[in-house]
Design a protein around this nucleic acid. Structure first.
Lengths: 182, 182
DNA sequence: ACCAGCATATATCGAACTGATATAGGCTCG
DNA sequence: CGAGCCTATATCAGTTCGATATATGCTGGT
């Protein structure tokens, strides 16, 4: 599932600029399961326009920079339908925190405490963000389903972290570590 | 958290070849929260050797190709410790399936049914894999913690999917779709 | 008996993507 | 009244993925 398809999926719902597509990824309906940077969105939109899957018009704004509003074409809608019918890629989960956690036993207690607290905070923030999206957007059924899936998992992650983070901190405390040598 | 640090983390635990590092990412203790391909592991190991953070020796084998066994150096251990002390990157979750699910309402019922079943199967397989890792490896405390975190989440994901996938399928069924036109 | 396919093992390359940076106008708040 | 932020587009270097190449031996099916 590449940035190209992501752009088509958002334009399928209605017009948008590159900037707005980015925002929808970071704080909108897709926030939970997609990420894309400007560095991939803008080139993707250019290429989609070249291929005739989207069209654009430049819109002047008072008090803000001019923006380039993209719309999907019939060819774009067809291409998106084809993408949805194609075999799906694998889900990906990467966690620097979990790599860190494996080595709690050789790390200073204070550091483990800090990182665990930061991680819990991230989980809480992310869950709140999903709750807000669910509350604000009068989203369609598919969006609600995805959002509920995300919220269920974030809730558990938060609960699990809260219940078990002290064990990680205890590991760090248990063995005196290299910190003493520094 | 880059491939470089991943390699150091695995070599910190003991000697390994590039191939073995890859395996540990795919089916070992890290399977849940890390992924890395040969295309990034081998170059990373070469660079680490150039920098003196790891050393290698070539080991002949009967019945198998020769392998290049890497070991971490003191400089490597120090570099790894520095990495662990540095601020952590963000956790990443990307799900082509959830992007697909948003559009269940415009998709043929059969396709949604197939993809939902495939997704459930993946979740079951992944959970089983984590259970196996937990059972086989007499892993250290940090590994057990990470594994339990992963298992808790996979279990919920599986349960949630099992309980709610029929809603997705119903969405597809509810509105007749473009499939009729094909 | 033989061959297809799979596991081990290293390596490279193009395409994709991230994260940082550049540019630029206008707004807000201390 | 200026620092910093928001909107907005764009590019670039570095990282990573996914596919492919190469080589060898084992295993299972016909």
């Amino acid at each position: 599932m590449n940035v190209r398809t992501l752009c088509l999926s958002i334009l399928f719902e209605g017009e948008a600029t590159g900037y707005e597509i980015r925002r929808k990824c970071v704080e909108g309906e897709c926030a939970y399961f997609i990420e894309a940077s400007f560095g991939s969105i803008y080139p993707a939109l250019n290429k989609l326009e070249q291929e005739g899957l989207v069209t654009s018009r430049t819109q002047q704004q008072s008090g803000k920079p001019a923006k380039k509003v993209y719309s999907i074409t019939d060819a774009g809608r067809a291409a998106f339908a084809d993408e949805l019918a194609a075999p799906l890629g694998e889900d990906v989960f990467r966690s620097p925190f979990l790599l860190f956690a494996r080595y709690a036993h050789i790390l200073p207690r204070e550091l483990v405490e800090t990182r665990a607290a930061e991680q819990l905070d991230k989980l809480v923030q992310d869950r709140k963000k999903l709750d807000n999206v669910a509350a604000e957007h009068g989203s369609k059924a598919g969006d609600t389903w995805v959002l509920n899936y995300g919220r269920a998992i974030m809730e558990l992650a938060e609960r699990h972290m809260r219940a078990h983070m002290h064990e990680l901190i205890t590991m760090a405390r248990a063995e005196p570590n290299k910190d003493a040598a520094e």
